[in-house]
Every structure is written in structure tokens, then in C-alpha cells.
Amino acid sequence: MATLNVNGEPFSIDVDGATPLLWVLREQLGLTGTKYSCGIGLCGACTVHIDGRAARSCVVPVSSLGTAQKVVTIEGLSPDGSHPLQRAWTELDVPQCGYCQPGMIMAAAALLETNPNPSDADIDAGLTNICRCGTFNRVRRGIHLAVQQKRSRGTS
């Protein structure tokens, strides 16, 4: 039995504690926005937030979590797809196939939480998600655009 807090809602789940968070999200909670790709914590497709920090959910056993840890998935990033990154991504048509994008957006969102105006070097160091389609340059522009738009809205 595992207990989780996901997207603000507590869950009690009948599952082997060794099961990675990724698979509980996908198979028990039906939150399939978080993707499986490598299973060894490398590619970042499974990135979620645990207490606001980016985590690779494919290597986090659910037994290591409880309702005290707040898990946020792509489905819970914003109620209506209006997170500044989601808006910037829309404006720049960032995704191609889109499979890595939930993880990419969650990683970028966590980066912005700790560093509200990241430089290109900060983005390079902070974003280690794999995208095989090759959206990197639009991802970079998207992060800068989100920062810019957030600031201009904040000052207006």
C-alpha cells in the first residue's frame, strides 16, 4: 500500500512499494502525461515535481514517498494549460512529436522556480532532457519568452 499526494489530491494505492512512481502515475492513477522512455533516470521524459523539484519518476520507488511529499505532474502544472511555459510553448510551436515535452516542460518549470531568469548557460546546465526530434532551440526560446511575458505581465 502506498500513499501519495498527486496534483493536490491524496491517494491510497494498493501497489508494491518498489514500483516506480512513474508506473503508479500511469497505471494506477491514469495520469499518462508522464512518459516512459529509458527507465534509468536519464532521458527526463518522466520528469515530475516532488516538493517543487524536478524528479525522474522512473527511478523513484513509491515507498519513498508519502502524503507529505507533493507530487505534481504535467496534468497538474496548471489547471488549464496556462502556465507561462505552456503559453510560450504554444506561441512558438515548440513540440514536434511531443513525447518528451511533458518532461521537458516540467524540468523547465522546476528550473524557473529556483532561477526565475535563467541564462543560456543556466538552461544548458539545468535541462538534461533528451529530445530526439530536436526542439532544443525552441525550448530555449520558450523559456526566455515565458520569463519575458511573466515580467511584462507583472509590471503592467
Binding site: T32, I74, L77, G81, G98, I105
Partner: peptide
């Protein structure tokens, strides 16, 4: 703009997996 972006940003896009 692409017609298939919105669902890819919220986790709603269904892939084969």
C-alpha cells in the same frame, strides 16, 4: 501554427504507449 500542439503541452495527447 500547428494544429496538434495544445494537447502536447498538458499531457492530454495520447500516444501509443
Amino acid at each position: 501554427k500547428r494544429l496538434d500542439t495544445a494537447e502536447k503541452l498538458t499531457g492530454q495527447q495520447v500516444f501509443g504507449a
